Amino acid sequence: MSRIGDFAGSAENELAGWIVQSPEIGTAMAGFAHTVYNNNRLPMRVRELARIVIAHDNECAVCINTRDADGPAAGVDEELYQHADQWRTWSGYSEQERIAAEFAHRFATEHTKLRDDEGFWERARPLFSDELMADLALSCAMWVGMGRMLRTLDIGQTCHLTLPSRA
Rank of each mutant, 00 (worst) to 15 (best):
L163K: 06
P164W: 05
A8N: 04
R106F: 12
S139R: 05
T66Q: 10
A108S: 10
R67H: 03
R166S: 15
G145P: 02
A11T: 06
V36L: 04
D117L: 12
H105V: 07
M133F: 14
A84Y: 01
R3T: 01
A100G: 09
F107N: 02
R3W: 05
L138R: 07
A69T: 08
D154Q: 10
A134W: 13
E14I: 04
D116Q: 12
Y93C: 05
E14M: 03
F128A: 03
E48S: 01
A61E: 13
G26I: 09
I19Y: 03
N13D: 09
W18N: 00
A73H: 15
G156Y: 00
L138E: 12
I25S: 04
N58H: 12
E95F: 05
R51F: 03
G92L: 13
E48R: 00
A100L: 05
I19M: 02
T35I: 14
R3P: 00
R51V: 00
D135L: 05
L127M: 15
E122L: 07
L150E: 00
T158L: 02
L42I: 11
A100T: 06
Y93L: 11
T109H: 12
C159D: 06
G26F: 08
E48F: 01
W90D: 15
A137S: 07
E110S: 15
D154F: 08
D6K: 10
L42F: 13
W87I: 01
L80A: 05
M29L: 14
T66H: 11
L150Y: 04
Y81F: 07
C159N: 10
S22N: 07
D77G: 13
R151A: 09
S91C: 15
F7T: 03
M146C: 04
C159Y: 02
T27S: 08
F103N: 00
P164Y: 09
G5A: 08
T152D: 02
V76C: 10
E118N: 12
G31R: 10
E12Q: 08
G92C: 11
I64H: 06
A55E: 00
W18V: 05
T35D: 15
V36M: 11
R115S: 13
A137N: 09
Q82N: 03
V20I: 02
S10N: 03
H83G: 04
M29D: 07
L150V: 02
L80M: 12
P126M: 06
L114E: 10
K113E: 14
I19S: 03
N39S: 15
Q86C: 05
A100V: 06
G31N: 14
G119P: 10
I155G: 00
M146S: 06
H160Y: 11
D135Y: 06
T162Y: 03
Y93A: 08
I25E: 06
M146N: 04
S94G: 10
G71N: 11
A33P: 06
H160I: 03
I54A: 00
R125Y: 04
S22Y: 08
R67S: 04
H105K: 13
A30E: 11
L127N: 04
